[in-house]
Design a protein around this nucleic acid. Structure first.
Lengths: 227, 227
DNA sequence: ATAGTATATTGTAATAATGAAACTGACTTT
DNA sequence: AAAGTCAGTTTCATTATTACAATATACTAT
């Protein structure tokens, strides 16, 4: 049985992004302890003395959603003197990208304390969580332009239209479909699965997956993207 | 007299970049306490309980170089279990850009414990300082491509050739002079000072300064750079 | 089978950015 | 005054980006 100590002045907070119904959303939980009991807030946690810092958000994600090997990026350190009312606590913010179909919340009665909220409908948050959330969204928007990390928000197999809708949701602007496809074709990091969508009431779209190998080769060669 | 407490499990470390003799350099200090006494290392420090986190690197810079209002960016949090041998300490890395002509080290005898070292000649460093340094350099290279932060490394008045040499040093590649000038002219964030270099043994170059106002206007309009 | 509906997919012309060479300017050194 | 050195401009060919609309396909309803 694990018996390690928590470091009580250092925490992490996580902005967990998902993509559903064509919208970019984030996962919030209702606080069940004081201070700020009852408010929706970012999932967070403290660091064990015998635990690497980067392990903490991964552990928290696993506890909350059951998901392992989640895509995680650091947002930054937040350390204003009075950010946490009880005592001096410095927190490290992270964002995670998950495929929300891997983690559909029960809409039943018991799940009231965990909610997906569209990023433009986020309510008032406790402590400096609004600042952390805003910083995470800004970083995501920057990162997604220069690295193909958006795939982490989609299922294994996806259509080009889904991918475009995702980019439009994150960057909050319309993208020309023909140019988008041309750019993707040129970069060549999509693997054509030679499969079609099923059970759709219109022309079925082709399915693709992300070609990670190809992407890593390009990065080594110093290739740079810009969506 | 200030009598506040240091938080002993949270520190900051600073990669201080300067540009001199056409080379990108960083400032290192020789440790005068154990552990690792005598090794060159990144300047760092601990956080006071009544001090905002972001104030710490600014204070350290001021103590070390006398410079205020230095350009500072966060690199990230470094929190491996055994990164610091004595006890569990998590550190936040920052990088700073300073105009090294504002802070010329005495090359005399007393300054042996502080040195500018070219970024491709950095020696072995204690703890995880190599990791922090590498991360800082990677971030600088990324940031400099999308924001005109390089100006912080140059004197108030500079020539376009100096600016180009700076970019070449940071990005470690040759840039076409004609296109570099065209791009600058188009962006229009340089203010032509209508002044010339003096005491040079060739045609004197025109001097410019950075037009911060213009830059901020462009950013508001959503302009994006790519050098 | 046919028409209707909804989404998938494709091409072309105009414009802008880039890369490369040849030339002029201003000052210094010999 | 001739030669050297770096500053800065002009021009042109090549390549990349942008803007823009018609056709193809799969399914549904009749």
């Amino acid at each position: 049985m694990k018996e390690s100590l928590l470091i009580d002045n250092l925490s992490i907070d996580c902005v967990i992004f998902g993509f559903d119904e064509g919208k970019l959303k984030a996962l919030f939980i209702k606080r069940n302890t004081e201070p700020c009991k009852g408010m929706m807030s970012l999932p967070g946690g403290f660091v064990y003395v015998d635990e690497d810092l980067t392990h903490v958000p991964a552990r928290r994600l696993k506890d909350l959603t059951g998901l392992k090997n989640v895509f995680l990026r650091e947002v930054g350190a937040f350390g204003k003197i009075d950010r946490y009312p009880e005592r001096r606590v410095i927190t490290i913010g992270y964002y995670a990208l998950i495929n929300s179909s891997d983690y559909k919340l029960d809409v039943g009665a018991d799940a009231q304390d965990v909610r997906w909220i569209s990023v433009d409908e986020v309510p008032e948050l406790p402590f400096d969580h609004t600042e952390i959330f805003d910083a995470a969204l800004i970083k995501l928007r920057k990162h997604v332009r220069y690295e193909p990390i958006g795939y982490n928000l989609l299922p294994e197999k996806f259509t080009i239209t889904q991918l475009q809708t995702l980019y439009e949701a994150i960057l909050n602007k319309k993208i020309d479909n023909r140019n988008f496809r041309k750019k993707l074709a040129k970069i060549g990091i999509l693997k054509d699965l030679k499969e079609k969508q099923k059970n759709v009431s219109h022309r079925a779209a082709n399915l693709y997956s992300f070609n990670k190998k190809k992407y890593e080769t390009l990065v080594e060669k110093g290739y740079t993207f810009d969506f």
